[in-house]
Nucleic acid binder design. Structure first.
Lengths: 210, 210
DNA sequence: CAATTTTTTGACCGATTGGACAAACGTTAG
DNA sequence: CTAACGTTTGTCCAATCGGTCAAAAAATTG
C-alpha cells in the first residue's frame, strides 16, 4: 500500500526523515536552495540519492518541510513578549532570547535569511499573514507601554526590526563578525559582549527620561 | 592580437563590460551566484551568451569584478567617519549615510549579504585584511570619543555591527519589512521612519548622561 | 518456513549548465 | 577593392542536475 511518499508512519520512516532534514538544514543554510544538490544532502545524510527521494519525492519538499518547521521556532521568542511583566524587562528578555537563538540556531537563521534575500518566494504568504498579524499584535503591546510612559515614544515597528537585525546579524554575518573581531576578540565571548552592548543600547535608548 | 579577454582598451569594450556588470548585479543579487546562469545575465545584458563570454571568460570573473567594485563603495561611508566634527554628529551622519546606501543601492547590499551568508569564500582575505584594518582604525576613533566623555562607554566593535545590521536590514530584508509594514505603512516613507527611529535609538542610547 | 511489504540501490534519462570553437559579420586602414 | 582586426553568433560538448524505474535486499508478517 501507500505508493506515494511515506508519511512517517513507521518508526524507521520518522527517523530517516529526521536525518534527512538535519542534513538538508546544514546544506541548504550554507549553499542556499539552488546552490544545494540532492546528492550533497544525500551524502550528508549517509544514504543514496534514490533512497533520499524515497522519503522526499522532490527537493522542494525537503525545503518546504524545513521552512515550515523553522518558522514555528522563529516566531516563538516574539510570541513570548508579553504584557505581563515590566516593559523594560520584557524587552530585555526578548533581545536576550533572540540573541540566544542566533547563537544556538545559526543554520536556521541563515536558511531564513537566504529565503528572504531571494525575495521570499516560498513564504511570502506566511510573512503577510501569520508574521504580520503577530507583529501587529505586539506593536499594540509596545504602543501601550509607550502611552503609559514606561517606554519612550518611538516607532514600534522599526524597534522590532532593529531587534531582529542586530541579533540575527550575529548568525547571518558570523563570518564577517569573526573576521573583523580577529582571533582574540572573536572567540565564544563575542556573544556575551554583544548581549551586553545590545542591552545597553536598547535600554538606554528606550528608557523614558526621568 | 590580444587573444585573451579584452582589457577594456577600446571604448566599446568598456561600455559592454559596464552593461554586463549592471546586468550581472541585477541577476546575482536576486538569485545568488550559483542560482544565476550566464544565459540570464546575457539576456539581461541584451546579448548572446558567447558574446558575453567574449568580454568575461568565466562566470566567476564577472562576480569577482563585481565584488571588488562593490567593496570600495561599501567601505566609503565608514571611511568618512572622522575625528573632525562633533562625535554625536559624526555618528548620526554615518548612520544616515549607511541607510541611504541601503535605500539607493539595495542590490549591492544583497550581493554582499549573499556572499557573507555563504561563508564569504571569495572575499575572506578582504574581510580579514582591508575591512578589519579600517574597523580597527575607526574603533580607535570611537574609543577616543568615549574616553573624552562625548560618547557613553560601550563596545565600539559591536556598535559598528549594530549600525551595519540595522541599516542593511532595510535592503537585505526589504521583502519582509514591506510585508510586515503592510501596503499603507510600507511605502517609500519607510526609510524616513527608519531614519528617525535609528537616530533616536543610537543618539539616546549613546548620549552621555548629563 | 514462505509470502508480502518496506527499504535500498545501480543504472539510466532528459534538461540545464558553463564553456569552447570556428565561422560569420562588421569596421577600419591602406 | 583587400587585408586585418574586433565583434557576434550558431553549434556543439562534457559535466552536472533533478528525478525515474526496475530490481535487489531487508524487514515484517503469517
Amino acid at each position: 500500500m501507500e505508493g506515494s511518499t511515506p508519511r512517517g508512519r513507521t518508526r524507521i520512516q520518522k527517523e530517516k526523515r529526521e536525518v534527512i532534514l538535519e542534513a538538508a538544514l546544514e546544506v541548504f543554510s550554507t549553499n542556499g536552495f539552488r546552490g544545494s544538490t540532492i546528492d550533497q544532502i544525500a551524502e550528508a545524510a549517509g544514504m543514496s540519492k534514490p533512497n533520499l527521494l524515497y522519503y522526499f519525492r522532490r527537493k522542494e519538499d525537503i525545503h518546504e518541510t524545513l521552512m515550515h518547521r523553522l518558522l514555528e521556532t522563529w516566531l516563538a521568542p516574539l510570541k513570548e513578549l508579553d504584557n505581563i511583566g515590566d516593559p523594560m524587562t520584557e524587552l530585555r528578555g526578548y533581545i536576550r532570547r533572540k540573541l540566544e537563538m542566533a547563537r544556538d540556531f545559526p543554520r536556521e537563521s541563515r536558511l531564513f535569511a537566504n529565503e528572504i534575500l531571494q525575495g521570499a518566494p516560498r513564504i511570502m504568504a506566511m510573512l503577510e499573514g501569520e508574521l504580520k498579524t503577530l507583529v501587529d499584535e505586539k506593536v499594540d503591546v509596545i504602543k501601550g507601554w509607550m502611552r503609559s510612559g514606561k517606554v519612550v515614544q518611538a516607532d514600534p515597528w522599526h524597534l522590532i526590526f532593529a531587534i531582529w537585525a542586530t541579533t540575527q546579524h550575529y548568525a547571518d554575518f558570523d563570518v564577517q563578525v569573526r573576521a573583523v573581531l580577529g582571533p582574540d576578540r572573536g572567540g565564544e565571548g563575542r556573544f556575551e559582549d554583544a548581549a551586553r552592548f545590545l542591552e545597553q543600547l536598547f535600554i538606554e535608548g528606550l528608557r523614558p527620561k526621568s
